[in-house]
Amino acid sequence: MKLIGTTSSPYVRKVRIVMAEKKLDYQFEIDNVWAADAAASPASPLGKVPRLQIEGHESPLFDSRVIVEYLDTLSPVGKLLPPSGRERADVKTWEALADGLLDAGVLARLEATWPGRSEGERSQAWIDRQMGKVDASLQAMAKALGDKPFCCGIHMSLADIATGCALGWLEFRFPELSWRDDHPNLARLADKLAQRPSFKDTLPA
């Protein structure tokens, strides 16, 4: 398998961590979709990463949620998703919340930094709206986590990987945010996950 992405993308990091936890072998190919000469292609119609190219299949898988769900079926090692029912839905809801936080954060950062906009074209109101979603997501995460050791109980799951990637990206791109002070239970979870080799080996850069 070949994973196509960047080392700074939290969505790509989520897939890389799942690969590591599942002990799956793959090649990692860098593709900066924000480069000036980058363009959509048949292999990447949305112009996004990650993409997973599977030997024997012409079309890659894309969207991190699709990819990690597929990867969890490839090996019984370290199952990250419950097979069905409410437990599975709870894990996927955590993943959706973490990815939604990232979506909002990415939109805010692009509005503030994308070179395709001039200073006069940037909207602080839009940035504030997106950062409001980030704050609301952090509050929802902290409330749902409570005093549990992991997002969905006593074992690590995809919920924790997605959440850890979201929190790590916030530290990487928005170091000025005080989420650690505001939500110490999320900080404890992030610190615990950061000790795992899969997280250590995939730090954003």
Rank of each mutant, 00 (worst) to 15 (best):
L74G: 10
P76S: 14
G146M: 12
A112T: 08
P76W: 09
W126C: 02
K133G: 06
S118K: 14
R117V: 02
F62I: 09
L74R: 15
A108K: 10
E121L: 03
V66N: 06
L71P: 05
K79F: 01
P82G: 04
W126S: 09
S64A: 13
E95C: 14
H155A: 15
A108Y: 09
Q124M: 13
C165R: 11
C165G: 07
G146F: 10
C151N: 13
I127Q: 15
S157V: 01
I67Y: 03
S157C: 01
I127C: 04
I154D: 12
G116L: 12
E95A: 06
R109D: 09
S137M: 05
L107F: 05
V68M: 07
L71K: 14
T73M: 10
I67R: 12
P60F: 00
L158Q: 12
K79C: 12
S123V: 06
A159D: 06
G78M: 05
T163Q: 03
D103I: 03
A162C: 09
M141Q: 11
P76Q: 13
D135Y: 02
F150A: 06
G105P: 05
G153F: 09
V68S: 07
G78A: 08
L74Q: 15
P82N: 01
H155D: 14
D147T: 14
T163P: 00
Q124K: 14
M156H: 03
L138H: 07
R129N: 11
A98R: 02
K143W: 03
W114Y: 10
K143Q: 13
